[in-house]
């Protein structure tokens, strides 16, 4: 194992510790466990940030041209989204639900770190392209958390509406909190995604002197933006809240997920991932 692999392994272990404490919090609702979870998750987040930065310095380019780097950056972006959300509102139960997912992605980063991946066109190895990738990652991470909270809203709303109170899911936060946080994550994700798309367009134009508008990833990304724009229009223009607005969050996320990971598997694209 080389140094980056060791860093990935340690990061995964730190995320595992964070998961352990957040699980204990979920069971006991004791604040001290949540504080420990946040400490471990933050440590993992900063170590992962350091490892990514060190990789960048060592290679002269952001380490985003390999599966290991991509997954590591994605779990880093998820960690960032989670910690940003915690700054906005302290809903520890949500940390308990998302920490295992971040741990899972960081484990994948470690496991796939040993596999060779196709190299990126060297003309695209620029700071602008690295920023494009990171911003779309951040956007997707925020959509992921927004989607997760949307699902939690759906579950909680169903319980309260139809009087099917289950102890495990009853621990979810109030509907009002879940609603606000979904809007926060989708809003922030929208801005990151939009910024990422803009930077990507600039990079593509610099290299090929045209915009690859027919690329399925780009088409999908625009559609995602339109769906989420529709979500905000419904909420703020037509005052439609609750389950109906959450349907759009879910549809938007399914499309974002397909754009992010499915397009390359089923369609032709110029993107290497």
């Amino acid at each position: 194992m080389n140094l980056p692999n060791i860093a990935l392994a340690v990061t995964a272990l730190l995320y595992a510790a964070g998961c352990f404490f957040s699980f204990r919090y979920y069971r006991s609702l004791e604040d001290s466990f949540d504080r420990s979870a946040i400490r471990w998750l933050s440590a993992a987040f900063f170590l992962q940030g350091l490892a990514l930065a060190a990789g960048w310095v060592a290679r002269g380019y952001a380490p985003l041209d390999s599966l290991e780097g991509i997954l590591s950056a994605f779990s880093f972006a998820l960690g960032a989204a989670l910690l940003i959300g915690r700054l906005k509102t302290a809903l520890p139960v949500l940390t308990s639900l998302f920490a295992p997912f971040i741990f899972f992605v960081s484990c994948l980063a470690f496991l796939f770190g040993l596999k060779p991946v196709p190299l990126m066109d060297s003309r695209l190895m620029t700071l602008g392209m690295a920023s494009h990738i990171m911003l779309t990652f951040l956007g997707f991470s925020h959509f992921t958390l927004g989607f997760g909270i949307g699902v939690a809203y759906w579950v909680q709303e169903g319980q309260l509406k139809y009087h099917r109170i289950k102890n495990w899911s009853y621990r979810l936060p109030a509907l009002e909190d879940l609603d606000r946080l979904t809007v926060f994550y989708i809003g922030l994700g929208f801005l990151f995604w939009l910024g990422g798309l803009g930077l990507g367009a600039v990079q593509a134009f610099e290299v090929w002197n045209k915009l690859p508008l027919s690329d399925p990833k780009i088409v999908g990304s625009f559609l995602v933006l339109m769906i989420y724009a529709g979500f905000f229009l419904l909420r703020w223009g037509f005052k439609i809240h609750g389950r109906k607005s959450m349907v759009l969050v879910m549809v938007g996320y399914v499309l974002a997920l397909f754009t992010f990971v499915g397009v390359r598997a089923f369609l032709n694209t110029q993107h290497i991932f």
Partner: peptide, 8 residues
């Protein structure tokens, strides 16, 4: 308790 699950 239910009210607190609807309104924060």
């Amino acid at each position: 308790d239910l009210a607190k699950k609807i309104f924060s």
